[in-house]
Design a protein around this nucleic acid. Structure first.
Length: 402
DNA sequence: GATATCCCCGCGACCACAACTCCCT
DNA sequence: AAAGGGAGTTGTGGTCGCGGGGATA
């Protein structure tokens, strides 16, 4: 009743996912170089790893499986390690052009190794959730698009992106919205002095956030869109701005704040959990960081517990704060200016932790008076009966009435 | 290997009625 | 605008039945 989980939901999204074999599915005749096959279709090569499902999926199945319902959309996914083909990748080695899990990264880039691999440039690979389009994935894993797919030494990621065939038409059918990259003339009236196309109305903002129109209840994220300026700040009001400023792929890049400007990461950046705190405690954001799409990012640190996986889909402030450190390395110029904002962020983290601690997923009684009434109601085979009629169960009497 | 049967498990529906919400006067 | 009344809606818990899946013959 409360969770609203139907069997269909379970079949489509959860149970199937839960039954995925952890062991990689290797097709006979395929070389290790070609990678492991998708746990779902068994035809395409797997490319992303879903922690919640413990499954390796190709991109098409990834989106099919994780667009089934609101819960499956929360599943946190990331690339598969191209070395062991089992663990989720956490870093991208720019020099070797491979995505590596923590173990393989440690083995390959150990500071104690004699070769120069320890000096390789590495990027943190972020998780994503939701139903990103091919363009969005391309933006997330910008390193894939920046490379030549036709090159002989293409990695699994690059091959996967090249093989990616996702029917964006069906996407609209299923109610999933694409990120509004740039549609001139489609935006609503904008305040003076602002770019019309950079100020979406609330509905378009919801689209930009990737809210799935049909099956995603905005109340679930407890989000007050009318105050989205408070959420994202006036400097970043649309996805157009995002894509004009490096796209989601910029998440992989270390930020260097322009001189004289303060680029404090948004406290609630792209975090639905953070959205939840907006209604009661609006958080002023100063960031130009992207807060967009149906993708929510979280780090791929290896400390994900099962319980955190649920949070991972809506991302964790703790993880975000680590990412923010990557995005905005403090400079001497910024320290003083950002100290106050840091305090604000720490307070937000504290509030988030308290809220997370108090969060309960089990049934909650909204009206105690009704519960008290139901607790004393007489029943017949569990059903309430009219007062005065015969009954076989009285909560006030331990034994049956007859 | 394919089919049939049994058993177990999980979830939705059912019930009455006080509490609550909405609308009209 | 505020108050009152009526109609409609909501939510509460224990039990049953149904359907799916696994185990076994």
């Amino acid at each position: 009743m409360y969770c609203g989980l139907t069997k269909r939901f379970l079949i489509l999204g959860l149970v199937k996912g839960a039954r995925f074999q952890v062991e990689p599915n290797i097709q006979i005749g395929s070389s290790l170089k070609m990678g492991y096959m998708c746990d779902f279709c068994g035809e395409q090569r797997s490319m992303v790893y879903c922690r919640s499902d413990a499954a390796c999926l190709c991109l098409s199945c990834d989106r099919n499986v994780h667009s089934a319902n609101a819960l499956s959309k929360r599943h946190s996914r990331t690339l598969i390690c191209e070395r062991c083909n089992v663990q989720p990748a956490s870093v991208r080695c720019s020099d070797e052009r491979v995505s590596l899990c923590q173990n393989c990264d440690w083995l390959g880039h150990d500071g104690t190794s004699s070769n120069a691999t320890s000096h390789h440039k590495k990027q943190t690979i972020n998780c994503y959730s939701g139903c990103p389009s091919s363009a969005e994935l391309g933006s997330i894993w910008s390193f894939c698009l920046n490379l030549d797919f036709s090159s002989a030494g293409e990695s699994a990621c690059e091959q996967g992106m090249g093989l990616m065939t996702i029917d964006d038409g069906s996407r609209e059918k299923s109610g999933v919205q694409n990120v509004n990259v740039d549609q001139p003339g489609t935006s609503s009236a904008a305040p003076q002095g602002m770019d019309r196309s950079s100020v979406p109305d609330n509905s378009s903002l919801a689209k930009d956030l990737g809210v799935c129109k049909d099956d995603f209840n905005m109340d679930e994220v407890d989000m007050a869109l009318e105050n989205y300026e408070e959420l994202f700040g006036t400097a970043f009001n649309s996805s157009k701005y995002l894509f004009e400023h490096g796209g989601i792929g910029s998440l992989f890049e270390k930020h260097e704040a322009p001189e004289g400007s303060i680029q404090q990461p948004a406290v609630s950046n792209a975090s639905a959990d953070s959205f939840m705190s907006v209604r009661t405690e609006p958080i002023i954001c100063y960031s130009s960081k992207p807060a967009n799409s149906n993708i929510s990012f979280s780090g791929v640190a290896g400390d994900n517990s099962v319980g955190d996986i649920q949070d991972c889909g809506v991302s964790s402030l703790q993880q975000l704060s680590r990412e923010q450190e990557l995005w905005c390395p403090p400079t001497s110029q910024d320290i003083n200016a950002t100290s106050q904002a840091t305090t604000t962020r720490n307070n937000a983290v504290l509030r988030y932790k308290e809220k997370k601690k108090a969060r309960k997923f089990d049934k909650r009684v909204r009206y105690v008076s009704r519960k008290e009434r139901a607790d004393v109601r007489r029943r017949v085979k569990g059903r309430f009966v009219k007062s005065g009629e015969v009954y076989d169960y009285d909560p006030l009497i331990p034994a049956r009435s007859y």
